Simulated scan of single mutants.
Amino acid sequence: MVSARPRNGWVVWLTFAVGLLLSISPMPQFMEILRPLWLGLLMTFWTLALPHKVGMTTAWVLGLAEDVLYGTLLGQNALVLSLITFLVLSLQQRLRMFPMWQQCLVMLVIFGLAQLVQLWLSALTGNRQPTLALLFPALMSALLWPWVSYGLRGLRRRLGIN
C-alpha cells in the first residue's frame, strides 16, 4: 500500500509567512492604496490546491495573526479572510474548470466583497476610510492572480506538495 504521508507541508506555511511579511512591508505612500491582499491570494490558491488541509481554521488563524500585526480589532481580518476562504470553497469545483481570465473575474468579485466587508467593519469601529478606494486592492489582487497561481502551481509540482 502506498503511504499517503504529507510531503513538504512546511512550504505552505512558509508561503503564508511570506504573505504576512508582504502585507506589512513598507511601501511608498502613493502605492499603499494599491497593496494587494497577499494572504487572500495565498489562501485562495492553497484552498483550491489542498482543500483537505487548508480551510476555514487556517484562514481564521492567519486572520488573527494579521489582526495582531496590523493592530486592528481582533477578529476583523480573521472574519474577512474566512469569508474569502468560504467563498472559494463554495465555488471550488467551478473555479477549477474556469479559464484564467474567468478566474480573475471571480477573484475580483470575491476580493471586492471582502473589501466591502472590511469597509463595513471599519465603519462600525469608527475607523471608516473616506472613499471606496478600498476596492483598489481587490483589483490589484485579481490582476496578480494569474502570476501567483502559476508560480505557486510550479512550486507545488516541483516540491511534490500534497
Score class of each variant (00 low, 15 high):
residue 95 L to R: 06
residue 41 L to Q: 09
residue 55 G to T: 05
residue 133 A to L: 10
residue 136 F to K: 03
residue 98 F to Q: 10
residue 31 M to I: 13
residue 44 T to L: 05
residue 72 T to H: 12
residue 92 Q to T: 14
residue 129 Q to N: 10
residue 24 I to M: 10
residue 80 V to G: 07
residue 130 P to M: 04
residue 84 I to A: 09
residue 88 V to A: 04
residue 86 F to S: 11
residue 59 A to V: 08
residue 122 S to A: 14
residue 80 V to C: 12
residue 111 F to R: 00
residue 91 L to Y: 11
residue 108 L to T: 01
residue 103 Q to S: 03
residue 109 V to P: 00
residue 55 G to M: 07
residue 133 A to Q: 11
residue 136 F to M: 09
residue 111 F to P: 02
residue 70 Y to D: 14
residue 117 V to K: 06
residue 42 L to H: 10
residue 28 P to K: 15
residue 46 W to Q: 07
residue 49 A to T: 04
residue 96 R to W: 05
residue 129 Q to V: 13
residue 126 G to H: 02
residue 132 L to G: 10
residue 76 Q to V: 08
residue 36 P to Q: 07
residue 42 L to M: 10
residue 118 Q to D: 11
residue 42 L to K: 01
residue 20 L to V: 12
residue 129 Q to G: 05
residue 123 A to R: 14
residue 25 S to C: 13
residue 71 G to Y: 02
residue 119 L to G: 10
residue 76 Q to H: 14
residue 77 N to K: 13
residue 32 E to L: 15
residue 29 Q to G: 04
residue 116 L to G: 00
residue 119 L to H: 12
residue 52 H to W: 05
residue 45 F to P: 02
residue 136 F to V: 13
residue 60 W to E: 08
residue 42 L to R: 05
residue 80 V to W: 05
residue 51 P to K: 07
residue 118 Q to C: 03
residue 37 L to I: 14
residue 89 L to N: 15
residue 57 T to G: 15
residue 94 R to I: 15
residue 36 P to I: 04
residue 84 I to M: 13
residue 109 V to E: 00
residue 68 V to F: 14
residue 137 P to C: 01
residue 100 M to Y: 00
residue 98 F to D: 08
residue 80 V to E: 10
residue 87 L to R: 02
residue 82 S to N: 01
residue 73 L to Y: 13
residue 35 R to T: 02
